[in-house]
Computed example of a mutant assay.
Amino acid sequence: MGPEGMPSGPMVMIPRCSNVTRVTSQITLFVNPTAGRGRGASAARPAADALRGAGFSVRTVLGEDAPDALRRAREAVDAGTGALIAVGGDGLMSLALQAVAGTGTPLGVVAVGTGNDFARSLGLPVKDPARAGRLAAEALTAGTVRTIDLGRVGTKWFGTILASGFDSRVNDRGNRMRLPGGRFRYDLAMLAELAALRPVPYRIALDDGPVREIEATLVAVGNGPLYGGGMRMCAGAVMDDGLLDVTVVAGCDRRTLLRVFPQVYRGTHLDHPKVTVHRARSVTLRAPGITGYADGEPVGALPLTARCVPGAVGVLAATR
């Protein structure tokens, strides 16, 4: 990451993105009004003001639910919008990626959710919609985007991490719980999964290599370094290197996991003897009774194959 939130990585001229050249003056705000406990609705205005102040026409897309929102975002992209500016948290960023990946339409990020791992991974502003809007406007005016890779599982694109094992079981349990609300639900789910901790028999294949059989606590496949609200599970992942980082935490007891877990926020867990890292263009994971979560959203039961798609999307970023 460069100075003051300026992301590093290749910068290219927007004309490489074919959709952008059709209608460059009209920009679409893709908004989740409930993101960040209601911050999404209030964040849309300063972001829109920054874009309009730079001379762009702005229209807003909302949805009644996630499928409806995605349909509307795709319609905007198909109609030739100059950019899709996502205003919300990682859930909305995931929907936005489904709409723009592989189309040539650049993505702007106004991160106002609770985790904001996609924006943090790119060094973009978090919970500062006015600044994020100005950055997007500057990039559009200058005609630059940063191209990054995405992961893909089946038809699902992801920008950060495909999680499986202990962390996905926490998600499963948390999603089944009705009370309490908010983050506390997942804290309780984590405690329950710790009490039931057991290693998972994985079969892992990297690219065209042999199948590896391993007892693991979790396996995380990262296009980017972060998930779970700032956990650097795949700390060494680079979002434009054409590779996925595969972090394997071998089977361990509760005491070891509790000792290693706080290190995830600094990325120093990668030095622990129970942790190994691999890099590959594609990864196939097989394990019984495990659901995969990509960018925090369920993508289905294992087996799953994740592939890195180089240069799959352009992100609006500050000029150098």
Rank of each mutant, 00 (worst) to 15 (best):
K274H: 14
G228H: 06
E213H: 13
L206S: 02
R198Y: 05
E297D: 15
R279S: 08
V260R: 10
L304W: 00
L270H: 13
D208R: 10
P310C: 02
G228V: 04
V221M: 05
T291D: 14
L206A: 04
G209P: 01
M231G: 07
G236L: 06
Q263C: 02
R259P: 01
P273I: 05
M233W: 00
R266G: 15
T217A: 07
N223M: 04
G311E: 14
G292N: 07
G251L: 09
R212G: 02
G222W: 00
H278Q: 08
T268W: 07
D241F: 08
G311L: 04
A235N: 12
T268A: 13
I204W: 06
T291K: 00
P298N: 07
G292L: 11
P288E: 15
Y293T: 03
P303V: 14
G230F: 07
G251R: 07
V248A: 02
Q263P: 01
T276I: 12
A237Y: 03
P273S: 08
A294Q: 09
L257P: 10
P225H: 07
V275N: 04
H272F: 08
A216K: 09
D207V: 09
C308Y: 05
R232Y: 02
M231K: 04
H269E: 03
V315S: 02
C308S: 08
L270Q: 11
V221A: 05
I290A: 01
V275P: 11
Q263H: 14
T291F: 11
A196D: 14
L226V: 04
R307Q: 11
A220L: 12
P310F: 04
L244W: 02
R307I: 04
G267Y: 08
D241L: 05
L244S: 09
S282G: 07
V313S: 01
V309C: 10
G222V: 06
A216V: 13
P310G: 05
V238S: 09
F261R: 11
G296I: 07
G251A: 12
D240N: 15
A205R: 15
G267D: 10
V277W: 00
R266Y: 08
L226M: 13
G300V: 14
P298Y: 08
H272S: 10
V264R: 03
V211T: 14
N223W: 06
R266M: 12
V283A: 05
R281S: 11
G311D: 15
A287K: 11
Y202L: 08
P201V: 07
N223A: 09
V277P: 00
D271E: 15
P201K: 12
G300Y: 14
L206F: 13
G224Y: 01
D295F: 02
E213T: 15
G222T: 06
G314K: 02
R212A: 12
